[in-house]
């Protein structure tokens, strides 16, 4: 009962931003979202349509892979136990499927920022030959043949034509609702809970060693950075430089959020580490004098106990209400309306 009160009180403290037909809730200590909601005002019907599309393998060439195949809600929309993305015909890509969290606060997508807008992001996996191997024009042709989609698009856009822009906007809408702001860390920030001594010590170490890239409250600056990871010679992925053509961007990748990090293993752009302790050890073992990034030129020295404390703090970023949010799950209640038995 006490817990319920806490949750209710916590929700009351969330500031509510009103968009046409749908309220997007986020805490007052979050910055302003970067997504331009005026160009794509949230509405429940559009979010529902996006949810059905997100779980539908029709987006792939052989109707086998959906967005959710690699972005499962139970792993904070990452791909559990897969170091690299897994596409049609059992093909393996070259990067780890990132967790989808707080996307409204990001303006560049993919590990190298090749995508400049959330709306356009879905085009990349849809058309990648090793992911969904499909063409957006063909996706639209397939969707137009399905009465359920004609109705869902009509409900969402007052138009049953079905276009690429509508499909992408609906997918954006569903993903924009992926807001994680209800972890233990958040309840501590709202003064509704306190860290244990171990977590508090981990938080202190976090602020000292990690916060410059994984900045609170989103736990990322979403910059591109070289974290000292040696290139994987089986992939030879140079990262950001391929997009920016700036030699200084070689081996830079987008800094991922640490929210729900306990759910989103394996880690790094190619899933090299499966445990958080390995990630912490990566940073403490760096040859600091060789680092390109100034923030890594000062050694990170942690005792074994401190490493455990730091991981204990990272676990306070796990948001159960996010990963088990029923409105993110397989849309069985929407699909049931069209099921013919």
């Amino acid at each position: 009962m006490k817990k319920l009160w806490l949750i209710l009180f916590g929700l009351g403290l969330l500031s509510f931003t009103v968009f046409k037909g749908f309220k997007l809730a986020y805490p007052s200590y979050f910055p302003k979202p970067l997504y331009d909601f005026k160009k794509n005002p949230l509405a429940q019907q559009k979010i529902d349509l996006g949810r059905v599309l997100f779980y539908d393998p029709i987006l792939s060439k052989d109707n086998s892979i959906s967005c959710a195949s690699c972005h499962s809600p139970y792993n904070a929309f990452a791909h559990v136990d897969h170091d690299l993305s897994h596409g049609i015909g059992d093909q393996v890509g070259s990067r780890n499927a990132p967790a989808l969290i707080n996307l409204a606060w990001q303006s560049e997508f993919m590990w190298d920022g090749a995508i400049n807008h959330l709306d356009m992001q879905a085009l990349a996996p849809i058309s990648h030959p090793k992911e969904m191997g499909e063409d957006i024009a063909n996706v639209i042709t397939k969707l137009r043949q399905i009465p359920m989609y004609r109705e869902l698009f009509f409900d969402a856009f007052a138009d049953s034509t079905i276009t690429g822009a509508q499909t992408l906007k609906a997918l954006s809408q569903f993903q924009l609702t992926f807001i994680s702001a209800n972890a233990k860390y958040d309840s501590v920030m709202r003064k509704k809970s306190v860290f244990t001594d171990q977590e508090a010590n981990g938080y202190r170490l976090f602020k000292q060693h990690c916060n410059s890239c994984h900045a609170e409250p989103l736990f990322s600056t979403y910059e591109f950075a070289d974290n000292g990871l040696k290139i994987d010679s089986t992939l030879n992925d140079l990262g950001r430089v391929v997009v920016s053509h700036n030699p200084l961007d070689s081996l830079k990748f987008k800094v991922p959020t640490l929210r729900n990090v306990a759910y989103s293993f394996p880690y790094m752009h190619h899933g090299r580490f499966s445990k958080l302790s390995q990630v912490v050890t990566h940073y403490t073992n760096l040859t600091f004098c060789n680092q390109k990034d100034k923030r890594l030129q000062k050694p990170i020295v942690l005792t074994e106990n401190e490493k455990v404390d730091l991981v204990a703090f990272l676990l306070t970023l796990s948001d159960k209400s996010f990963v088990f949010n029923p409105s993110y799950s397989y849309p069985k209640e929407i699909l049931a309306r069209w099921r013919r038995d």
Partner: peptide
């Protein structure tokens, strides 16, 4: 500016998927 319809709809095949 994100997804736009009509002449700018990515389904027209005039939009790069792999790099916006």
């Amino acid at each position: 500016s994100g997804a736009m319809g009509g002449a700018l709809d990515p389904m027209n095949g005039m939009y790069w998927a792999w790099q916006s």
